[in-house]
Simulated scan of single mutants.
Amino acid sequence: MGAVSSRCDAGHQHSGSDQNNDHTPIIEDDDGRKQSSSGGHRSGETVPCPTCQGTGRIPRGQESKLVAVIPCNDQRLRPRHTKLYVAVSVGVCLVISTLVLFFLFPRSVLLSPVAVKSSLVYFPDKYVLIDITNVLNITNNNYAPVQAYNLSVQALNFETVVGTVSIKNVTSVRPRSVTTYSFLIPVNLTDPNLNNYCKKVSLPVHILYLHLQMSMTIYYLAHYEQLSLETYEFIDCGANSTTPHQMQTPPP
C-alpha cells in the first residue's frame, strides 16, 4: 500500500510539474527580457515592440495601418544600375520624341505651274470659246499624305474675267512625292474687239494674254491650309493648239 501511494504521489508531483510547465509563458515578460538582455545590452537600451505587443506577429486587420521601417544601409534602398536605367529611359524618350517630331512636323506643300497642255478654239457667231487644259504640279514634302480640295481658277484678260472653274475634289498626294494634275478652264471671249481679233484670217498668229489666279485647300496632319498661285500664259485664240508649252510666272 505504501508503494502505491508513493507512486501516486510521484505521479501527482509529475502532473503538478507539467501544470507548472503549461503556465510558463513562451515569451518572457518585460523584466525577464530586460534581465536576459542585460548580458549584451544595458537596461533601458531596448524597449518592447509597441505594435506587436511582444507576440512577434501583426494583429489581424491592422496590415494597412502599420508601417515597416527599412534601415538606411539596406541594399533594397540602393538598387544596382539605377543611373544606367534612368539614362537609358531618358535616351529612349528623347529618341522617340525626336522621331515623332521629325516625321510629324508640318512641311511645305507647293503648287507650281507646268504647262498649257492644249487649247481648243470654237467660233460661235458672237463670241469665241476656248477650252484650255493646264497642268499643275503639287509637291508634298511631308511624311504624311495630303488631300487637295476646292481648286478655284480665275482667268483674266487685262483685268477682265473671261473664265472661271471650280473643282471640289482634286486629288491625293502621297508622302514625299509630286503629283501632276490637269484641269480644263473654259474661256469665253464676248468682247467684240477680241472676237474680231481672234477671227481675223489675215493674222498668222492670234496671241491672247491670260492671267490665271488659282487657290486650293489642302488637308494634312489634322489641319487645313490654303495655297494660292498666280501665273501667266499665252495662247493662240485663232487656231487649235495641242502642243504643250510652258506657263510663265508673274513678274515680281
Rank of each mutant, 00 (worst) to 15 (best):
S228I: 10
I235E: 03
T171W: 01
V205I: 15
V153M: 08
N140T: 06
L208V: 05
D125I: 06
P175R: 14
L194V: 05
K168V: 06
S108Y: 10
L208G: 00
E233C: 10
Y209P: 01
N140G: 12
V165W: 03
S119V: 01
Y143H: 07
L104Y: 12
N137A: 15
V173W: 11
V201Y: 08
A144H: 05
Y220F: 14
V201F: 07
H206K: 06
D236A: 12
D131V: 00
S152R: 11
F103D: 11
F234K: 11
I167W: 08
V116G: 01
N240M: 05
Q246L: 11
D191Q: 02
I130Y: 04
C237Y: 00
V135H: 09
F102E: 08
L129Q: 04
C237V: 00
L208P: 03
H206I: 00
P192S: 08
V100Q: 08
Y220I: 06
S108Q: 11
L110W: 09
T164G: 05
N150R: 05
Y197S: 03
Q154P: 00
G238W: 04
T164K: 14
N157R: 15
P145M: 09
V100F: 15
E233I: 13
F105E: 12
L111P: 05
P175H: 03
K199H: 04
D236V: 04
T133R: 01
I185V: 08
I132E: 02
L221Q: 13
K200H: 05
K126D: 11
M247L: 13
S152I: 14
S177P: 09
V109T: 09
E159H: 12
P145Q: 10
T179Q: 06
Q154K: 13
T171K: 02
L184M: 09
Y122W: 06
V187E: 02
T139I: 07
S112K: 02
P244I: 09
M216H: 08
L156T: 07
V162N: 05
Q226W: 13
E159W: 05
K168Y: 07
L104D: 12
V178E: 08
P124G: 12
C198H: 05
Y209Q: 01
N195M: 10
S202Q: 15
T242Y: 04
N157H: 07
E225I: 04
V162R: 00
V116Y: 01
Y197T: 08
L136H: 02
N195Q: 13
S112Y: 14
S112C: 07
S228Y: 05
S172P: 10
P244T: 03
Y197G: 08
S241N: 12
M247N: 07
A144E: 08
N193H: 15
I185G: 00
P204M: 05
R174H: 07
T139L: 09
S112H: 14
E230M: 11
S152T: 11
L136T: 11
